[in-house]
Simulated scan of single mutants.
Amino acid sequence: MNPAELEKSKSFISVEIIEYIPNSIVSKTILKKSTGNISVMSFDSGEGLTEKTSPFDTFAQIIEGKAEIVIDGKSFYLNTGQSIIIPAHQANIVKANERFKMILTVIKSGYE
């Protein structure tokens, strides 16, 4: 088993995989493959990711709290249970106006 991944054939509760750490962003890999990866992340209030651009589409699913995701300068406010696809090659920022957890899925295939 890849130690960077969660154990296979064993159920888990996504929101319980990761804890909040004060003044921090925490990330844990659920699955990592050459064709993409799935991670769960927690953001403490006031934290965020600096603007970046990915060569791949990214599916962001909020599993606890509320997030602000900025894509090409437009803010999207997502609540628990909501999701958004961040398009490849578009500048994006993730902001935690309050603490939240999300699952990020990056699909690398289809761009060959």
Rank of each mutant, 00 (worst) to 15 (best):
S11Y: 11
H89A: 13
K8A: 11
K108C: 07
F12A: 10
S34R: 10
G110W: 07
Y111W: 07
V106I: 15
F43L: 05
K8R: 14
I17Q: 07
A4H: 12
V15A: 03
S54A: 06
S9I: 15
G36E: 02
F12D: 10
L104I: 12
I30E: 00
S83N: 03
S9M: 13
I107P: 06
K28E: 12
P22D: 10
N79V: 04
I21W: 15
K10H: 15
I107A: 14
K101A: 02
P3K: 01
A60Q: 04
S27W: 07
L6C: 11
E5N: 05
Y77C: 08
S11A: 15
P3C: 05
L49S: 03
T53P: 01
G48K: 00
T50K: 06
M102H: 06
A96F: 13
G110E: 08
E5L: 01
N2L: 12
E68I: 13
E98L: 10
A67S: 14
N92E: 00
A91T: 13
L104T: 10
S39L: 09
V94H: 12
I69L: 14
S54L: 02
K108Q: 14
V70M: 11
I30W: 04
K33G: 12
I71Y: 04
M41L: 11
M102F: 11
F76K: 07
V40C: 01
K32G: 09
L78G: 08
K95V: 15
A91Q: 05
F43C: 04
G110A: 01
V15K: 00
E112F: 01
S34T: 15
L78H: 04
G65H: 02
N92K: 00
K95D: 14
A67C: 11
K95L: 15
E51F: 03
N92M: 00
E112P: 02
I85Q: 05
I85Y: 05
E16P: 00
T58Q: 14
F12E: 08
G81N: 02
P3A: 03
S75N: 11
F12H: 09
A4K: 13
S75K: 06
A91F: 03
I84E: 00
K28C: 12
I93A: 10
V106Q: 09
S14Y: 10
L31G: 04
S45Y: 08
G48D: 08
